[in-house]
Design a protein around this nucleic acid. Structure first.
Lengths: 210, 210
DNA sequence: TGAATTTTAACATAAATATGCGATTGATCT
DNA sequence: AGATCAATCGCATATTTATGTTAAAATTCA
């Protein structure tokens, strides 16, 4: 028996979802609310397996509700519901530990499957949402790579800097003189337009150079 | 009419997929190959809308094939097929512009839907795969936040370190003595278990402390 | 082959950092 | 009221970094 709690401000949709889910074998709607101002209380009260959470709600919105839950509970599966596949919301939701992200126009039969999948650890999402997610993956990653024309050796040195190595340790690790390490690092600083180790490290992370 | 090309080394599965897809209204299998050594040629020859690509193939594997295609064509939808939802492969595939990622045990009816979705810009993935993807997004993020019990002031200092400030600059910025900055930084190092600025910076990024 | 780049290295020096040992003032909690 | 901790500062010192200059192999490329 999969226990579900619903947060959705639109009364029709809330009722519809409740009827659909509660009327299906194996599912049980423990509660359906028009906002998530009492979500922590309801979480403890009903101990749901899955929460369906509308993104756009007056008062405390879905993302805030999600954050509140995740501060005290990382077990319950939370599926976000939305009308649009809006990029920034997707990112915020997933970053904060949402388990799924579905469009409200998802067909009822599918919705039930998705809830079941979420309950067993899956992360259901419509393919249009998934598409956005993948773009974030490749979009953030690809542009970088080697904007700064670091040579092989320089990349190695930078990697070791990022790992917290001192010049001495880098020299030992790479079997070269410490002065050579200095040379490389000077070159790296020129190419990255920085002038300290920690700036270089920060830039390496920010621009995903390694 | 959705044009599909298949790369799959297992003859049974290759035949099965071909029969299934080519035998369905609206789909057309242009070719099915046991490896992707000639993939660029075949891409130009058949101009498919969707490529089904097995990950584990002898010779040139699916990830390599994916990269080869993406170097010259970013339009065609590429769905990766795999037996396991293996974490590192998923990441590599998505990072290199795969459009979908499905388990081979996906039911035939679903597979056809997924191909159709991919052809229209969606990114089909089974929910177990999606779950892995989301973990990459958030999994590293949630547990932390403040694992290290940094005080407010310490967080400020760390933030400035990450921004590449020297002790002197931090002191000026925060209107405190440089010795105080030292004190804070010593405390930060203790709490983060590091002993250099760049290690602290790296840790701040890795553990998303700021 | 000649030119450009990368990798290697040495020497010198000023600046920044890491570390140790104290110490005072508030705020907070019990 | 006493204990605890965050935040503030000082002083000393050894180590590490940053920067400048110079230059010889090795590699790559036209």
């Amino acid at each position: 028996m999969i226990k579900v709690v619903i947060y959705e401000d639109n009364p029709q949709l809330r009722e519809g979802l409740t009827m659909l889910i509660d009327g299906t074998e194996g599912f049980r709607v423990m509660g359906a609310f028009k906002n998530c101002s009492q979500i922590i209380h309801e979480l403890n009260e009903y101990k749901p397996d899955v929460i369906l959470m509308d993104i756009d709600m007056p008062g405390v919105n879905g993302i805030e509700g999600l954050k509140m839950v995740r501060q005290i509970n990382t077990e319950v599966s939370i599926i976000m519901l939305t009308v649009f596949d809006d990029n920034s919301n997707i990112f915020e939701a997933l970053r904060n530990g949402a388990n799924g992200y579905l469009l409200k126009k998802t067909p009822p039969a599918r919705l039930l499957e998705y809830i079941a999948e979420a309950a067993t650890g899956g992360a259901p999402m419509t393919s249009s949402i998934a598409s956005q997610v993948l773009k974030m993956f490749s979009g953030l990653n690809l542009p970088g790579s080697n904007q700064y024309n670091l040579s092989e050796r320089e990349k190695q040195v930078l990697q070791l800097l990022v790992n917290g190595y001192s010049y001495k340790m880098i020299a030992a690790d790479m079997f070269i003189a410490m002065d050579t390490v200095r040379s490389h690092i000077k070159k790296i600083y020129e190419k990255l337009h920085v002038n300290s180790k920690s700036e270089a490290v920060a830039k390496a992370f920010r621009d995903r150079l390694l």
